[in-house]
């Protein structure tokens, strides 16, 4: 920001009545959401998600619910969340698949080889604390909100797709209708009203847990207390906020 701009703003504020200055400092976040009539304060929340992999049954309902809730294109090239199946055979071969993101569950296996381990891994945007996508956006169209959710400003995005390249998890895509980058928003429009994200809402086995960091009275806290917690690609230092328990070493 050029200093002249800030100075002008500051001078303009000073010229107003002092209580107006106070009001301006508080209005920012509230203005964004108070129009809905709520009193949601983003500075009081810091969202994260937990996924318990020993509970995922690979039904794909989360994938479907996400597409329904967020108006994601139906075609199997655009996913805000998806499920992967890992099959580790006794001879060491690893096979991974995600047919249409797992939206219609998975086809049966032709059981020719002996299986050592097999499981499902739901994936989504990790809403990293050090998001590489935010770092590379040339115009500031994607950002981490005050409540820890990485969002895209689709009215400002120029569609350069640098963020899609920079995401190590493949969580982003280009919406073919708006030609802007898009991805999971933790169902921001739901969580700011006290609802759960759609994927968490429909998960039949409660494999997905939604909650907040730094608070005790959240289901996420129990999971983080009692399980071994892993994140995807920790060596990238993105500090993901989607925490897995029972995450196998073969998962990328």
């Amino acid at each position: 920001m050029p200093k002249t701009y800030e100075r002008r703003e500051f001078l303009a504020d000073l010229a107003k009545i002092p209580c107006a200055t106070l009001l301006l400092g508080v209005t920012g976040p509230l203005q964004a959401l108070a129009s809905e009539g709520g009193d949601y304060d983003p500075t009081e929340h810091y969202y994260a998600m937990g996924i318990q992999l020993d509970k995922c049954i690979g039904c794909g309902k989360c994938v479907q619910a996400c597409k329904t809730e967020n108006d994601v294109p139906e075609e199997p090239f655009y996913f805000r969340t998806w499920v992967e199946r890992y099959i580790i055979y006794a001879d060491g071969e690893v096979r991974v698949d995600s047919p249409e993101g797992g939206i219609k569950s998975f086809p049966p296996l032709e059981e020719e080889k002996q299986i050592l381990r097999t499981f499902f891994v739901p994936k989504l945007c990790n809403h990293c604390d050090h998001p590489p996508c935010v770092q590379v956006c040339p115009v500031g169209a994607t950002f981490k909100s005050q409540d820890g959710v990485v969002l895209v400003d689709s009215d400002y995005c120029i569609g350069c797709r640098y963020c899609i390249q920079a995401c190590p998890y493949g969580a982003r895509y280009l919406d073919p209708r708006s030609k802007t980058a898009d991805k999971c928003t933790f169902c921001y429009h739901r969580i700011t009203k006290g609802l759960l994200p759609a994927c968490v809402e429909v998960c039949p086995t409660q494999a997905r847990i939604f909650g907040e960091l730094g608070k005790l009275s959240t289901p996420l806290n129990r999971m983080m207390r009692t399980s071994n917690i892993q994140v995807l690609k920790p060596h990238m230092n993105t500090e993901p906020k989607v925490f897995y328990s029972e995450l196998d070493g073969e998962v990328r």
């Binding site: 976040p29 959401l33 129009s35 400002y156 759609a198």
Partner: peptide, 18 residues
């Protein structure tokens, strides 16, 4: 931050299905 603060409200205003 380096973004349009109004964008937050725009995202939060999406219609709900579930």
């Amino acid at each position: 931050g380096h973004y349009r603060a109004n964008a937050v409200g725009a995202v939060a205003a999406h219609p709900i299905q579930y």
